[in-house]
Simulated scan of single mutants.
Amino acid sequence: MPRLRLTIAYDGTQFAGWQLQAPGGGRSVQGCLEEALGTLCGQPVRLHGAGRTDSGVHAMAQVAHLDVPEAKAGLPWQRALNARLPPDVSIVAADLVADDFHARFSATGKVYRYTLWVERAYILPWRRAYVWNVGRFAPLDVAAMDACAGLFAGFHDFAAFCNAGSEPASTSRLVHGVTRLASPSPLEMTWEFRAEGFLKQMVRNLMGALVAVGRGKVSPEDIRSVLTMGQRRLAPPTAPASGLCLVGVEYASDGRGHKRHLLHQPEAGQG
Rank of each mutant, 00 (worst) to 15 (best):
A103T: 04
D88R: 06
G49E: 12
R52V: 07
F15H: 00
P236D: 09
Q19E: 12
E196Y: 04
V247G: 02
Q19I: 10
G24N: 11
R27Q: 12
G177P: 06
G255L: 01
K259N: 05
E192Y: 12
A93N: 11
S90Y: 02
Q62K: 05
V89L: 15
S219D: 01
T39R: 14
G17D: 03
A129E: 14
G243Q: 04
P266S: 11
A239G: 10
I123L: 15
T238P: 06
V175R: 01
S219V: 02
R215C: 14
Q201W: 08
E267T: 14
W77Y: 06
C245H: 05
Q19S: 08
F161L: 13
Q21S: 14
L227Y: 05
L4E: 07
L199T: 09
R104L: 12
A64V: 00
Q43S: 14
Y10V: 03
F105A: 15
R194W: 06
R127K: 15
I123W: 12
V111S: 05
M202Q: 15
V57W: 00
S185N: 14
M229A: 13
N205S: 14
R5Y: 03
G269D: 12
W77I: 03
D100G: 03
A160D: 04
M189A: 07
H176N: 02
A212S: 15
V226P: 01
L140M: 11
L206P: 02
E35M: 07
L20V: 14
V57G: 02
G255K: 01
V178W: 05
S55K: 09
G177D: 07
G51Y: 00
S55I: 03
L246W: 00
V45F: 12
A241Y: 00
R136C: 05
G31K: 01
C162W: 04
G51I: 03
D99M: 10
P168W: 09
P69Q: 07
S28W: 13
S219Q: 09
W126E: 07
L33M: 10
G24C: 08
L187A: 15
R79T: 08
P240T: 03
L244V: 06
A73C: 09
Q78W: 04
V89S: 08
S106F: 00
R224L: 04
L246V: 00
C162H: 11
V29M: 08
